[in-house]
Design a protein around this nucleic acid. Structure first.
Lengths: 116, 116
DNA sequence: GGAAAATGGAACGCAGGCGTAACGATGTTC
DNA sequence: GAACATCGTTACGCCTGCGTTCCATTTTCC
């Protein structure tokens, strides 16, 4: 069932979540980094650097650097593909799942606060 | 009436909108810049640099620079407060309203695409 | 009127993301 | 097996946002 939002609800939702994110903001992900993270966790694997770059319409180094940064944060992991060793498969981590779980909760919480 | 979202819907919504934003990405606002913009347009005026800084839990120069950047983009305007000339009042613009209108549409569109 | 406080902005050096262009490693083709 | 293609990464110079600190202007308070 689709979610019907008024214009005011849509922006109010975005406002609330963004505000919370900025206020507490431990990790401070770029919009691109967040998009990559969400893509990795919500779209069925496998994910490769080239695939993500094409999917998000960005250059390859953008993906590499985002994986570097988020890898250090423990949000994501990388492994060489043993079947074609040119490829790198991007792996999910417990930390990443937790991060997105919190984000999801934040969205739901602010959704509940909206009035029509 | 509150909006009830499942965890999957919440993240799916965020994913879709973020992805669209990254893919087309004309202006490429920082998360902080977006939070400031939304705050200016959704919370009743007047807005001052100091007030916004306190509200978002960031330092003053962050607000000043964000207003510089978004001012050049035509999303926001600044005027000296004539009653207390130390203050600067932040003004909305047609460009900013249009930008947020599009963002709202994007959110609503992706909301409609979610399944429970 | 003069000291103190408040406001927004500028200056500084720093950190990190950006796109382009290369590179090494691996796989494919003939 | 030699040439070519593909993949992820690195190197480079650039740009922009960051926090701290300081400053000029304006207001408030005795």
């Amino acid at each position: 069932m689709p979610i019907e939002l008024t214009a005011s609800q849509a922006l109010g939702l975005w406002h609330g979540v963004t505000l919370d994110q900025v206020r507490h903001d431990e990790r401070d992900l770029t919009l691109r980094q967040l998009a990559i993270l969400l893509h990795i966790y919500l779209v069925p694997p496998p994910h490769t650097v080239r695939g993500l770059a094409a999917e998000l319409n960005v250059t390859k180094p953008v993906i590499t650097r985002a994986l570097d940064t988020m890898g250090e944060m423990g949000l994501v992991d990388r492994m060489r593909d043993e079947r074609d060793r040119r490829n790198v498969v991007i792996k999910r981590t417990v930390g990443g799942a937790l991060y997105l779980e919190k984000l999801g909760d934040l969205v739901r919480e602010h959704g509940r606060r909206q009035s029509p």
